[in-house]
Simulated assay, not measured.
Amino acid sequence: MGIRYRKSINLGGGFRVNISNSGVGYSWGVKGYRVTKTAKGTTRRTASIPGTGISFVDETGKGNGRNNNNIKPQQYNNDIHKNHYETKEIVNSVTTNMVSEGLEDILSAIRKTLMVNRISNIGIWLTLLVSFSMPIFLILFFGFVGLKIYVKTKGLVDLEYIIDEDQKEVVAKRIEPMLNVTDSKKIWRIMQSNKVIDRKYSSGASNEVKRTPCIGTKKVPFPFQANTPAATFIAGKETLVFLPDKLFIIQKNKVGVLNYSDINTYTHTTNFIESEVVPMDAKVVGHTWKYVNKNGGPDKRFKDNVQLPICLYGQIELKSTYGLNTVLMFSNTNINN
């Protein structure tokens, strides 16, 4: 499978990425000079004189790997008053730490596009405010608006995927499960987990989690455009973009990128006591009570003791020594079968 990264705006050169059964390699450069990272890990530099057929090639061995940014130990807090203890935050490291070896150059080009977009945003607001008292600044305002439009249309990182026949099945096994999750009626990002002191007040659950709604889509977000669907998950100010060859993590104007070989993935189902509306595609496997006795019956001392459904949800955990620590929960467990 081959991928060509083409930039329509000159913000850092063009990229060509090739994925085959021998591995992943990519190159970048300008006319007369190109640097290639081969699938074997070597770096090839090619200098040529256009029109003469004269060129010079220098290939060096695999360089020293970058230092891994290990996940920091999780912080645990005792929260006796809220019936919780051993609170565990489930968050990613900053994206600048999440860069697999050999991907720094691709990431640099993406960051330049985001930087220009940010400059245009700041320029639009500043010149608009100043123009109320100094109308001459309207000229700059429209200039920044034009820059904004240019970056949003011509400055996208164009991802063109060409999949070799012998790689189609490999790519499908990697990306289709995540694409299927986007079809789920409800998706959440698990941000925190807690152990419970008294299960009576947790509907009988020994653990509780804090979750936030997550938007799942097959569209690629800015600053990308692609000729193939991507599994994109948006939760708050963080976006995860699953492409056939890599995972991009976007935090506001910061971007990280990881090879799938650097990610550990765990998929399983979990019983979840649902206090909100049950999604239409969820499977209800039982019921409990908001305040439950040890025998499973309702504690009649509480007037608002309503019955709650127990749903079977899917869960995907993504971890990496580079700082990735994400847990996605989704309502339809059949889509990954």
Score class of each variant (00 low, 15 high):
7 K>E: 11
7 K>A: 11
7 K>R: 15
9 I>H: 12
13 G>H: 08
15 F>V: 10
17 V>G: 06
18 N>H: 13
21 N>C: 07
24 V>Y: 12
25 G>I: 12
32 G>K: 06
33 Y>D: 06
33 Y>K: 10
42 T>I: 03
45 R>Q: 14
52 T>F: 00
60 T>L: 08
63 G>F: 06
66 R>W: 09
67 N>P: 05
71 I>N: 14
73 P>A: 04
78 N>E: 13
82 K>G: 10
84 H>M: 06
90 I>G: 00
91 V>R: 15
98 M>T: 04
101 E>S: 12
101 E>C: 05
106 I>S: 09
111 R>V: 05
112 K>G: 10
114 L>I: 06
121 N>D: 13
135 P>R: 08
141 F>W: 14
143 G>W: 07
143 G>C: 08
145 V>G: 04
146 G>R: 11
151 V>H: 04
151 V>R: 03
158 D>C: 11
162 I>Q: 15
163 I>L: 09
176 E>N: 13
177 P>Y: 06
177 P>E: 06
186 K>M: 15
190 I>Q: 12
201 Y>K: 07
202 S>P: 05
214 C>W: 07
219 K>I: 10
224 F>V: 00
227 N>E: 07
229 P>S: 01
233 F>G: 01
233 F>E: 01
238 E>C: 04
238 E>K: 15
240 L>Q: 11
244 P>R: 03
246 K>N: 12
248 F>P: 01
259 N>G: 10
259 N>P: 04
263 I>F: 09
275 S>W: 05
283 K>Y: 09
285 V>E: 02
286 G>W: 00
289 W>R: 03
303 K>V: 12
307 Q>I: 04
310 I>S: 01
310 I>R: 00
316 I>R: 13
317 E>G: 02
326 T>P: 03
327 V>E: 09
